[in-house]
Amino acid sequence: MNKTYRIFISHSWKYGDAYDKMVKFLSEHGISYYDHSVPKNDPIHTNGSDEQLHDAIDAKIKGCSGVIILAGVYSTYSKWINKEIDISLLYGKPIIAIEPWASEKTSSVVKNSANKIVKWNGKSIADAIRELF
């Protein structure tokens, strides 16, 4: 019987294709999971306050097994990714940093907070989830 992981996938909806590819990788590599990410259709994204979004992210991370964060250079400048890291560390949640495919520059902020850094590769991501979560 497969374990079902409780995963928070950090993402910016501006880069929604990366989130979609991550979800595909998980399915292709036999990872059964409950998605703790704040969904795109949640009205907090468009109509909520920063405090409401923070509280929603906090609640999602608090109940998850671990956090996946894409370590693209944009992550360094995202106030929300930095808050997700802080919340993850507060609750002792392991963080997997994913280095984007063919990237020359990555986020040292994300990588320095990660328990494991892997490349943008489905098998590597699945192995890291099984190891840490």
Rank of each mutant, 00 (worst) to 15 (best):
W13I: 08
H45C: 05
I117D: 03
V38G: 06
T4C: 11
S65P: 05
S108Y: 11
A71E: 09
V109L: 13
N41E: 15
Y74K: 13
I117G: 03
L89Q: 14
Y33S: 11
L70H: 13
K14C: 10
G16P: 03
I98G: 00
I98F: 00
T106W: 10
I85E: 04
G16H: 14
G30A: 00
T106L: 01
I9H: 10
T46S: 12
N115W: 04
S12W: 06
G122C: 03
H29P: 04
S65W: 06
E99C: 04
P39Q: 07
W80S: 07
G92T: 04
N112D: 15
L53F: 12
W13N: 02
R6S: 15
N2C: 09
A71F: 06
D17Q: 10
A71C: 04
T106N: 06
N2F: 12
D55S: 13
A102Q: 13
V23Q: 15
W101H: 14
V118W: 01
I125H: 05
I81D: 07
S88D: 03
A18P: 02
K24R: 14
V110L: 05
Y15L: 13
S113F: 06
M22W: 04
N82D: 10
S10T: 10
G48P: 06
L26D: 09
S75G: 04
W101E: 14
I117L: 02
D50N: 12
N112Q: 13
W80Y: 08
I81G: 07
A102S: 13
S124L: 09
A71W: 06
V109Y: 13
F25D: 03
I129L: 12
K40R: 15
E131H: 02
I98Y: 00
K21Q: 11
K79S: 13
W101D: 09
I31D: 12
K62Y: 11
I81A: 05
V118P: 02
P100V: 00
N115Q: 05
G16T: 10
W101L: 12
H11R: 14
L89I: 14
Q52E: 15
S27L: 14
P43M: 05
E28I: 01
V118C: 02
D17N: 12
E104M: 11
K14G: 11
K21Y: 12
E84Y: 05
A102F: 13
N115D: 13
V73H: 14
S103G: 01
G30Q: 05
Y5P: 09
